[in-house]
Design a protein around this nucleic acid. Structure first.
Lengths: 217, 217
DNA sequence: CAGAAAACATACAAGAGTGTATGGAAACAG
DNA sequence: CTGTTTCCATACACTCTTGTATGTTTTCTG
């Protein structure tokens, strides 16, 4: 005899898939960090009991492993492809900026969450470090294709990428109008060259039009 | 009747001060993060029981508050003073580099630990954000004193500081010989000017002489 | 060397989180 | 519609950590 023959089906689908758990866990990972990725709270969030979890996963470790795979699958490639197609210096840099601002293509919050996680886990740290290296290398290669010497290309790539990482890490919040006003200065600092005014205007027009006043989220 | 009339005095002083607890907590904070700052483990580390802790502190929160104050007292000012005395562009930038490399003056590991902590605590986040702003402002003011326009000075300050933050955040590890080989490129990227060869050589000679092959720790 | 104050030990209570074992409900194949 | 298989609920055991209450030992003071 059961006290509750049918579960509370107020707001949940009949059956949960493994991916449903991963999805929910990702949200918590991004919003509250790895420490908050707990089976108990996830179960509550999904309106099931922990029994369900232990059917889909062997334990917490396996779930965390899946989260790392998900991150790798999502955020790898978007940056690199932006650079691969780029011809001119303007095009590449601006495309990169666009990717970093457009959170549909690149998820900086997830990236940052994984980065936080990596600081307390050797395994995750290794994976993230590898990813960072490949990103910097891609940017450096782009600089080299645009006439920069190897060392300078590498350092400029690093400065560009590191600045962006801190942008998220420090949670810089500034309206898009303000941010685009820094475009010329950023470009000058990152490349050592002056940006083509036409390209700058086009970029600014597109960015301010697409709304996106928030950077942090 | 007590089972153990005298405590195990194998390797500890007779009495602990409040600062002893803070010092131990700082080590754990830096090494393992806020989450690892636990009364139980600290007590074990100090060879006392938790009873001691609750005499010196009302609870965990008070200890954490003390840690934040300690960080603020230690890492605030060192950066700013390096810039205040600087005359030429070379002098200021190189002094800044020196401060960041010399872990006796500036503790990047502590800085990073607090930064990690800040990402999960609103109160800490506010304090750190304020500190970051004042640091960037100080660098920007320095750039302005050296002939850069306001906006460009601000962006260059940000890029310089943000790059440095990521250097620690991503745990870049490279031998000092390699790092100093990037000096010219870094200087060019950060300032848009060429470094004075004599100043560069003097800096490199001093850095490589002072040993310090490790950056991470 | 008493007595008070400071510093610490011990024991208990409570909460949160994980993992396991097992029984019951849902979905599906035949 | 019956029997598996899949999926989830329930209950229990265990660990870790915090906080409190109270007793015991040092250390300081006069």
């Amino acid at each position: 005899m059961t006290l509750l023959s049918t579960r509370d089906e107020s707001k949940r689908q009949a059956q949960l898939t493994r991916d449903d758990w991963i999805e929910a866990a990702l949200e918590v990972l991004v919003g509250e960090g790895v420490g908050a990725v707990q089976i108990t709270s996830l179960a509550k969030k999904l309106n099931v009991t922990r029994g369900s979890f232990y059917w889909h996963f062997t334990g917490r470790e396996e779930l965390l492993g899946s989260l790392l795979k998900e991150w790798h699958a999502r955020n790898t490639g978007v940056m690199l492809s932006a650079l691969a197609h780029a011809g001119s210096l303007e095009e590449g840099i601006l495309d990169l900026f666009a990717v970093w601002v457009d959170h549909k293509r690149f998820d900086p919050a997830l990236d940052q969450a994984v980065r936080d996680w990596a600081r307390r886990s050797q395994g995750v740290r290794d994976v993230v470090a590898e990813e960072d290296e490949s990103r910097v290398s891609a940017i450096a290669a782009f600089f080299e294709r645009n006439g920069f010497a190897a060392t300078e290309a590498f350092i400029r790539a690093r400065v560009l990428y590191f600045t962006q990482v801190s942008y998220y890490a420090l949670g810089v919040e500034e309206p898009m109008t303000e941010r685009v006003s820094y475009l010329e200065a950023y470009f000058r600092c990152f490349t050592g060259r002056e940006i083509d005014p036409a390209a700058a205007d086009a970029f600014i027009a597109r960015r301010t039009a697409e709304g996106g006043a928030d950077i942090s989220k």
